[in-house]
Design a protein around this nucleic acid. Structure first.
Lengths: 343, 343
DNA sequence: ATAATCACAGAAAACGATTAAGTAATAATT
DNA sequence: AATTATTACTTAATCGTTTTCTGTGATTAT
């Protein structure tokens, strides 16, 4: 039962100070009906005795755990391993902690058969952030329609606050830059099915359309995020085209590596013979040779505002405003896109 | 107070079933003094009513949260972003969840001024895993000497169970392989101060010594893990040596990129003109061109046994055996080390 | 001088679960 | 038939907090 861990409770303090537990509690929580001198005495004693509140007891009484659930995919190798999401999570965590919240992973616990929603209720998290997951999963839908505060990242549900990276503007900016560098034959290998992908693909067509460029179907290929092999294969297909593109945009920075390998193997140089661009702006992209031109997503803003909005939802339940926070990225101008204008 | 979340308690079930709460609790926990038929009735009702236990209440009473604290560095960009640690954590999480435990991040919460140990006690975690952090940090020391079950990863404290990747054998295997490929001039850029580094450096000297090779001081350079720039700079220094090494071992796979860039810039080809090797065996290493020869650490075994041992410590407190689990890695034979024996 | 107000603190219930101890009723043993 | 054992439950205390209500002496207002 008692696992040998010495733990001082409010009771111990009350005995030492000769007051009731109620007084101790109120002193510690700075209620107005306790004399200043009493408060100080109690607080000093608490500090001396090494008191820290018992979060379980507090949670039981107040129905607040100051714990946030995070739902990141746990299946495949994605999730934590994906630098983009790892950074978003990291920044989410920082902002949450700054506000006194801790982070607990929510998962479909295979042992207890709890769904995400059930798990969240079981742990009593005050709210949940969802990212990097199959948003069509019935378990996710259950959570979305449940009663807990929820914010989603990079996906929009109409009844929930969402933090989204501006993939439309991102793609537009990236393409505009490439266009300004003189490119007209711009191919795009995009990633798996998702709203993120839809936005990027849509923006790709729209932007090029506005620039007066029509895109041959052969220039647009469905790939897989983070998958170097698929990207390499599709890149080869593009290189074999009669009217080979002068620039290829890859699903993301990591998969770029597959594309780069395919290009080198083909005997072409980057960017002299062909230009490329990535997406995400992860650390890797900036250490590759040549340094990638890519769209850097603002993982700090994404993680931070997800935490901010979630906490706002929790602490101000009546407002309960559904918001859309759109976070802009920026073009990182590396050396992988050649300037065709110069001579 | 009630945040509008409908939550079914044991009380509700007891009313519906016409029994006492004690009976419900015992039925749900499969105690032997409840009739089979009663148990079934109660369990069915619980299921129908959508009951899930309140972990706070349970924790308060039992002093067990079924929550494990993880202490991964939160400062710099390392931690979650570091693929090696991300994978270890991922596997730790999987094994923990398989045993009904959840994961909570422990941090030095800046707001409440709690130390790691205090934070752990506050959240009532049943145990803590420590990795990827400055093990000399006083706060870590406090935790190590505290009363909570703790396991460390990649660092040994003499009073605690540790899970360690076998860096001595790893380095020996890697060097032996390189030696067998005909290399005799093998340089080593190592990472920051840590026991991991010490083991690798020690093993590097010892192995080469046993192979009858004496290492010039100029071949061994102190670098920084994960740092491509430093690695690039030190690589250049090695390339400028009169008796340039035929193979360079880098601190880790990621920093390899810096080395590779430096080598290419210098006008040499890998592996034709110079060979290289990495360490970690992360995904990246296997998609680079040439595919890296590297020592792959067994992140699955590391994460999993950390969880196993921590849970054993928790569930069997009297045994309380201090263990050393040594996890071996394996040489991934890529194409970055040339076979000098052929011709 | 009496009533009203105020400042401060205590008593006690409650949150949702677990569990030791107690109590009937029935079954087994002598 | 009387005693003991077994089965199946209930009672009530408890974990550490929070919070509402109550109480008391002192100060202020009338």
């Amino acid at each position: 039962m008692n696992r040998g861990i010495i733990v001082v409770s409010i009771k111990d303090i009350s005995v030492r100070c000769g007051v009731s537990v109620a007084t101790v509690s109120k002193a510690l929580n700075d209620h107005s009906d306790i004399a200043q001198i009493t408060k100080e005495n109690i607080r000093r004693t608490a500090r001396e005795m090494g008191y820290f509140p018992n979060s379980s007891a507090r949670a039981l009484k107040t129905n607040r755990t100051y714990n946030l659930g995070v739902l990141f995919v746990d299946e495949a190798q994605s999730g934590l391993t994906h630098e983009y999401f790892a950074r978003v999570l990291e920044n989410f965590k920082v902002e949450a902690e700054r506000n006194g919240y801790d982070i607990t992973f929510i998962s479909k616990n295979t042992r207890s058969k709890m769904s995400y929603y059930e798990h969240s209720k079981y742990r009593g998290v005050d709210g949940v952030v969802i990212a990097c997951i199959d948003f069509n999963n019935p378990d996710v839908i259950e959570l979305i329609h449940g009663e807990l505060p929820v914010v989603t990242i990079d996906h929009v549900f109409d009844n929930r606050t969402a933090i989204i990276s501006d993939n439309v503007k991102g793609m537009r900016d990236l393409i505009t830059y490439i266009y300004e560098m003189g490119h007209r034959r711009i191919a795009f290998i995009y990633g798996d099915e998702s709203s993120v992908t839809q936005n990027r693909v849509g923006s790709y067509y729209k932007t090029l359309g506005e620039l007066g460029i029509s895109v041959p179907d052969t220039y647009v290929k469905k790939g897989i995020y983070h998958d170097t092999e698929t990207t390499a294969r599709l890149t080869r297909e593009l290189l074999n085209l009669d009217d080979r593109p002068t620039c290829i945009i890859f699903p993301d920075d990591f998969s770029c590596i597959g594309g780069m390998n395919a290009i080198k193997e083909y005997g072409l140089r980057i960017p002299d013979d062909i230009s490329i661009a990535g997406y995400d702006g992860i650390l890797l992209s900036q250490v590759l040779e040549p340094k990638l031109t890519t769209l850097q997503q603002d993982t700090v803003a994404l993680g931070r505002s997800a935490a901010e909005k979630l906490i706002a939802l929790i602490e101000n339940p009546k407002a309960n405003v559904i918001e859309r926070v759109v976070v802009e990225g920026k073009v990182l101008k590396g050396n992988s896109v050649k300037n065709l204008n110069i001579k």
